[in-house]
Simulated assay, not measured.
Amino acid sequence: MDLKHTFELYEDVKNDMKFFISSDVRIKILMSLKEGPKNLADLRNEIHLSSSTILHGMNQLQGKDIILRDSGKYSLSQMGKMAANKIINLMETVNTLKNCKDLFLNHEVDCIPKDLIKDIGCLNNSTLVSSTVTDVMKPHRVLSQFLMDTTNIKYLSPVFYPKNAEMFVKTMEKDGKVDLVVTSGVLDKLKEILGTEEVQKSISSGNWGVRIADDDLKLSLTMGDEFIAMGLFSTDGSYDLNVFLISHDEEAISWGERLFKHYKYKSEELKI
């Protein structure tokens, strides 16, 4: 959609957007009814507002065909369900950007596909692990601990960290699986640290899957059975070692799986 059409769309929907987000009462009614049909007493106990205030908000929502009333109970219409889901998505997106500001600000984000940018709210329950003056390697130390406790690793990165090679070997010793999408430079470093023969043996045994990504890859993603860790490049072109996004949330892990698959699809299988 070009800029002209974007402006025209805004003019068409701006009042409807204001209707949904400008009233605490209407938002709370939507969020409450998203859990299922409720009567006025239920809503009053959950929202902690007077009956008259709630009824006024519900009358406004009924006027937009967002809620329905049947036998003294209120519920969301099909349109209301869709509206509630999108409002929650917007709230999660804003919260993600607020909580992860130090990762996304002044870092490359064009490396994240547009469909995943739209779903960035999936990272809502994430935290940032940052270096400190007394623990400059804290992000990598925390990540290494997570890797020790997992039996399956997905690793997408143009960046080599020697400790990771050790973690990959330990995972293989636990009969785990290591799925790598790395640049040729990272593969060369793995061969240098572990030995070309050991790397080839790991691939032949099926314990390692290795694919080669383009050299212009601008993010690092590490995933285990129950976590996701992501690092980004600064806008000056250097990889930022000082901050990782980490999450154990199911939605975040699912988001990470989609990101990994995106780059895995674009990469080339290493054949030995």
Rank of each mutant, 00 (worst) to 15 (best):
E226H: 10
T235Q: 06
T196L: 13
A165P: 07
N152K: 15
L128S: 12
K191V: 09
D215V: 00
S157V: 07
S130N: 11
I228V: 15
Q200T: 09
T183W: 07
P139N: 14
L219T: 01
N164H: 10
S254T: 14
N242F: 09
I253G: 14
Y155D: 06
G224T: 03
F233K: 00
L180T: 12
M148V: 00
L194F: 14
A229Q: 01
K218L: 02
L194E: 13
A252M: 08
M172V: 10
H140V: 15
T183A: 06
K177T: 15
Q200Y: 07
N152W: 07
A252S: 15
D215A: 00
G231C: 04
E197K: 11
G195M: 10
N164Q: 05
P139A: 13
R141L: 14
E197D: 14
N125R: 15
G185W: 02
G209K: 11
V159N: 01
V178K: 14
T151E: 15
L219K: 03
T222H: 04
S205Y: 06
F233G: 01
D188P: 03
A213R: 04
E192T: 10
D225T: 09
G237V: 02
G121V: 11
V243W: 02
S238Y: 15
S205L: 04
S126W: 06
K174Y: 07
